[in-house]
Design a protein around this nucleic acid. Sequence first.
DNA 1: CAATGAAATGAATTATGGTTCACTCACTGA
DNA 2: TCAGTGAGTGAACCATAATTCATTTCATTG
Lengths: 225, 225
Amino acid sequence: MAYRKTERVEARLADNRQRILDAARALVSEGGWAEAQVSHVASAAGVATGSVYRYFPSKADLFVEVLSVVSQREVDVLEAIADNDDLPFQTLHAAVSAFVERAMRNRRLAYALIAEPCEKEIDEARLVYRHAISKQIMRIVKEGQEHGDFRTDLDPNIAATVVVGGFMESLIGPLSPFNADFDGSGKQDAEAVHALAGQIADVCCAAVAQYNNVTSFKSNQRRQQ
Amino acid sequence: MAYRKTERVEARLADNRQRILDAARALVSEGGWAEAQVSHVASAAGVATGSVYRYFPSKADLFVEVLSVVSQREVDVLEAIADNDDLPFQTLHAAVSAFVERAMRNRRLAYALIAEPCEKEIDEARLVYRHAISKQIMRIVKEGQEHGDFRTDLDPNIAATVVVGGFMESLIGPLSPFNADFDGSGKQDAEAVHALAGQIADVCCAAVAQYNNVTSFKSNQRRQQ
DNA sequence: CAATGAAATGAATTATGGTTCACTCACTGA
DNA sequence: TCAGTGAGTGAACCATAATTCATTTCATTG
């Protein structure tokens, strides 16, 4: 009879795969792409270098999966925010703030996944998730345009792209490992991050909102509620 | 008596250096960073591989200089635009449009310099010029805030960063060598590029403008002039 | 036109790090 | 128990490209 994996083995295999993925993510989280070497991943996961290739066809595939898992969670968070029934302005603000705050919670990883130079194949995978993020932002923008809160003279696709590029770019400085502004991780730090997220979100919202001057916006808010 | 370079030799050396720089830029313009190999540069410039190292200490130094020359010109263009005395809204619009249109004129090069994955050292040089660009945009933003055309509740640094990230990001798609939308380079193409630049600039301006709804903005414009 | 200093050459060297593979070992099923 | 299967190993291999350097060629000076 043919060889068949028992459940026990199946579980061990799955566990190995997961350990390799976890080790890979941990390494990127600590040292960025420079640390992300197959041999390092292997020892961190407690397996031999060659074993990594039993689970992943190549280094790029491994790290693309790491990036996918982490990025997909962010897309899901944005989707959930986009799904709620708040006013589009508040929704967009919440989406951008959430993204920024979540990124700042694991700066090194976020920096690697968003901005750090890396191999082509991984970089291409980034684009996929940028698109996915942009799509969620665009949903909010379109909703806002239909709702009357957002300007209708802007192309929603371009507006969403600018917004995504905008908050990504403004994250790069704060995320950068060379920037010491947000290292304490104390309470002060959390507040500083919150303030930063708010300011970035303000600019993003301003880009699409119908009424930008404070008085008009406030009356607009009241009118809508 | 000690050896002394004649003018003739001096000129030839300077010419060699320039030819190497030009060849390097041409190669990046054609094939991006993949073509940007020292040996390729050497043959394109009509010298031997080793000779490149008489003029530049390393590959990275060579290409950083290529990037610097090209990028500095863009910074200068923005500076000139920021210097003029138009209304801040028009100035910002012109700056963003100009950047987008100029980038689209040499797509492959712009793509390489802005977005294509490349070595760390070159990538770091990119940051320097992003900062320089952001600085010019910030000047316009601040002027607009003082002038009363732009919202004063936004942090000018963050606003400028978001704007720069926004138009850079929205360029990536159109610049990408895999995107066939803007290949013809005919008259239609020029118009499409112009339209794109206008739309991107609209979004960027909206992000900082005091009055976004069309009627208020128009009256605002009239009032200011 | 020697003699000397500098530039040019490009094949060989080096560095990096992903990938392979011949082998060992543990697990499976009869 | 034991033949068969496939997972695990890690040192060797390979690919890529930057960099070096012994040698040659060219320019300058007395």
